[in-house]
Amino acid sequence: MITVRKAQDRGQANFGWLDSHHTFSFGSYYDPRHMGFSALRVINDDVVKPGAGFDTHGHKDMEIISYVLEGSIEHKDSEGNIQTLPAGEFQLMSAGRGIYHSEYNASARHDLRFLQIWIQPNVFGNKPGYQQKDFGKQNGLTPIATPNGEKGTLQIKQDASLYQLILQPGQQIDFEVTNGRNIYLHQVSGKLTVGNTELEAGDGAKVEQQTKVSMANDKQEPVTALLFDLP
């Protein structure tokens, strides 16, 4: 079963310096029908004005992934990490027993756009951690985060995996689903055909009770999406 969440149906918060679209309930946006999916709790599509950003604030016991689509993030946290996260890179911050951080648009001229993703962990109270990596733009499914950090992936504290999907025009791929697992797709750019369903940029899809997910690019532009393999 595939259940689509259209981009235009997401929640929205606009504070002037920040324009954010929420796939799931977040902040002042609340919808009891959209509280998350399995361990996936937040997907926020954030656009931050030049020079603006999130002042220092805290998190606890949450796996927080940032994926930069345009621009770059200036990151600073209470564990001593001071990093720049450019477009195309992934960051995984394990909040553990508690961490404080700030995130700013590194540019004084151009907007920053990034996806902020929260995944609930399956272990709690650990020492906070920080990971960052560029996984390139290879066609097909590229593993980004896995429970064991295998093959150079980011290690996430949950029985969940995140993949980057890139398909060129005419390409297709199948993802085999382990019995009982849940799949969530978030469309980043282009149009992706999932079974008999078409996803556009910003759309999401829950895939439940299926043994395989068939994905194809039937259009003339490349496709980028994120695939979450969840408990």
Rank of each mutant, 00 (worst) to 15 (best):
L115D: 02
G195N: 05
H186P: 02
H59E: 13
G180W: 08
R97L: 06
Q120D: 14
G53N: 13
I73Y: 09
D174Q: 06
G96P: 08
D31L: 08
K206P: 00
E89Q: 14
I173E: 13
L199M: 10
Y29H: 15
N14S: 06
L199I: 10
I65Q: 04
K133V: 06
G98C: 11
N217Q: 07
Q8N: 15
A145N: 05
F37T: 07
G88Q: 03
D218H: 15
Q209G: 01
F90M: 05
G11E: 09
A39H: 09
A108P: 02
N139T: 15
T197K: 11
A87M: 12
Q116N: 06
D19W: 00
L226K: 03
Y30L: 10
G96S: 12
V47W: 03
I166R: 14
L185N: 01
K6L: 11
N148D: 15
S25Y: 11
T178F: 00
E63P: 00
Q210Y: 01
I183S: 08
N217E: 04
L40G: 02
A216R: 12
L69R: 13
S28M: 09
A52R: 15
G27V: 09
I82H: 11
K137H: 12
I65C: 03
G88M: 04
Y29D: 14
H110L: 11
G202C: 14
G36W: 12
K151N: 13
G170A: 12
Q155S: 11
Q187R: 05
D45Q: 05
S38P: 04
H101W: 10
Q220G: 00
Q171H: 02
D55Y: 10
V68I: 12
T224M: 11
L226W: 09
L226F: 09
E70W: 00
P128K: 09
A205G: 08
T23P: 04
K212A: 07
N44E: 13
Y100C: 11
S214F: 09
Q158T: 04
I2Q: 06
L227E: 05
E79H: 05
L92H: 00
K191V: 04
L162K: 08
G149Y: 02
P147C: 06
G180L: 10
Y30S: 07
D55Q: 15
